[in-house]
Simulated scan of single mutants.
Amino acid sequence: MHHFCAQDRWLRDNPIEINWSLGDLYFPPMDAPVDHPLVRSLVTDMTVLGRKPDVRGVEFMTNAAPYAGAGVSPVIFEPGGDGFHGHDENVEIHSLLETTKVIAASTLDWCGTR
């Protein structure tokens, strides 16, 4: 937003202000670097299972936002499925098992036990 405001004479003197809180909750934008050790570990462990990771940003609010506000780099990693947040939400069992293996392996990597 700073760079956007810098391009306009009036906005330079009257910059846009954004409040990321809602009551007592804080929802800042999140940005876990692609070279973050946890991201690299998840990518490596997915590749070992023969999967091609899809590392990308998303544009929705998650429960990870308060952690980001506390300085934690959040990563969203989940099994595949359909009907998210609907009455027929589901996950694919094969994907759930693979996701569990990747999270377990990445936890071991992160904790330095390998």
Score class of each variant (00 low, 15 high):
48 V>Y: 06
93 I>R: 14
53 P>H: 07
57 G>E: 11
105 A>P: 13
85 H>P: 00
64 A>E: 01
106 S>C: 08
106 S>F: 05
29 P>H: 08
88 D>K: 05
95 S>F: 09
74 P>H: 02
55 V>L: 13
19 N>I: 13
81 G>C: 09
77 F>Y: 14
101 K>M: 14
36 H>Y: 07
62 T>I: 00
91 V>C: 15
94 H>L: 14
19 N>E: 11
3 H>M: 12
75 V>N: 01
89 E>F: 00
100 T>C: 14
39 V>C: 05
35 D>C: 08
2 H>Q: 12
107 T>H: 00
49 L>A: 05
106 S>W: 04
28 P>M: 04
50 G>T: 02
114 R>V: 13
8 D>P: 03
20 W>A: 08
90 N>K: 10
68 A>H: 03
47 T>D: 09
73 S>W: 03
91 V>F: 14
114 R>A: 07
41 S>H: 14
73 S>Y: 05
45 D>M: 07
32 A>N: 10
33 P>L: 11
11 L>S: 10
61 M>C: 03
23 G>F: 05
56 R>E: 15
43 V>E: 09
9 R>N: 01
103 I>G: 05
92 E>T: 09
15 P>I: 12
105 A>D: 12
40 R>N: 08
79 P>Y: 08
99 T>W: 10
84 F>A: 00
101 K>E: 12
65 A>Y: 00
32 A>I: 04
2 H>D: 10
8 D>M: 07
99 T>V: 09
110 W>T: 05
69 G>K: 03
59 E>G: 10
41 S>W: 09
13 D>L: 11
73 S>M: 05
16 I>V: 15
54 D>G: 09
51 R>T: 12
25 L>H: 02
2 H>Y: 11
33 P>S: 08
10 W>S: 07
25 L>F: 04
37 P>K: 05
38 L>F: 08
26 Y>Q: 04
101 K>L: 14
91 V>A: 14
54 D>S: 12
108 L>V: 10
90 N>R: 14
36 H>I: 04
90 N>C: 13
109 D>S: 09
96 L>H: 08
41 S>E: 06
43 V>F: 06
111 C>V: 06
51 R>E: 13
50 G>A: 03
1 M>K: 12
48 V>L: 11
67 Y>I: 00
55 V>E: 13
77 F>A: 01
30 M>C: 02
86 G>M: 00
39 V>R: 08
93 I>F: 13
85 H>S: 00
111 C>N: 01
108 L>Y: 10
102 V>G: 13
85 H>I: 00
31 D>P: 02
16 I>A: 07
25 L>K: 03
16 I>L: 13
47 T>R: 07
10 W>C: 04
